[in-house]
């Protein structure tokens, strides 16, 4: 039984189940809209439901025959990269683009295995400087304010 479950829970089967769930939910959601507003999304969700059921059935039959492929190339590095990207997205509007970037570039590189800290740091500085020149000096754009400079001034 366990083997059977494991053999049918391929990434494709999970994706198909997720799609069936999504389209069913979308059909439920549009039922709360007026007929005119609901027409097009209902058509799309209905099509998606039909297609994903077909996909699910096909994958269920295929799952027992095909050796499942691993989903990630390298899961730990994927998680590290994703966490850093999300942190960076949250951080730079708050602490300032230049501060965040000068830390993010070398940190990202080092975290996924770059072994030359000086090169990483230098790249971070050079890249940040280039962005500053293009966006602030040439294009006169306002970047999110650098919290560190404000702190320094208040201090």
């Amino acid at each position: 039984m366990m083997r059977l479950i494991r053999s049918v829970t391929t990434p494709d089967v999970i994706a198909a189940l997720a799609l069936v769930g999504l389209s069913a939910w979308a059909l439920y959601y549009v039922s709360g809209l007026s007929a005119r507003a609901a027409m097009f999304p209902r058509l799309a969700a209905g099509l998606l439901l039909a297609l994903s059921v077909a996909y699910l059935i096909r994958e269920l039959f295929r799952a027992s025959r095909v050796e499942p492929q691993p989903f990630f190339h390298h899961a730990p590095r994927f998680v590290i990269a994703l966490v850093l990207v999300v942190t960076y997205a949250v951080a730079f509007p708050k602490i300032g683009f230049l501060t965040a970037t000068i830390v993010f570039v070398p940190l990202f590189a080092t975290a996924i295995g770059m072994r030359r800290p000086w090169l990483s740091a230098a790249s971070g500085i050079a890249f940040t400087a280039a962005v500053y020149v293009v966006f602030v000096v040439l294009l006169n754009r306002r970047l999110p304010p650098e919290r560190i400079i404000e702190l320094w001034r208040d201090f």
């Binding site: 850093l84 990207v85 993010f104 590189a109 996924i112 295995g113 770059m114 790249s123």
Partner: peptide
Amino acid sequence: QVLLAPMIVALMFLGLFT
């Protein structure tokens, strides 16, 4: 590529944010 990747992220976000 390990250095190029974070730079692409920075540009993606900056472009959208501006």
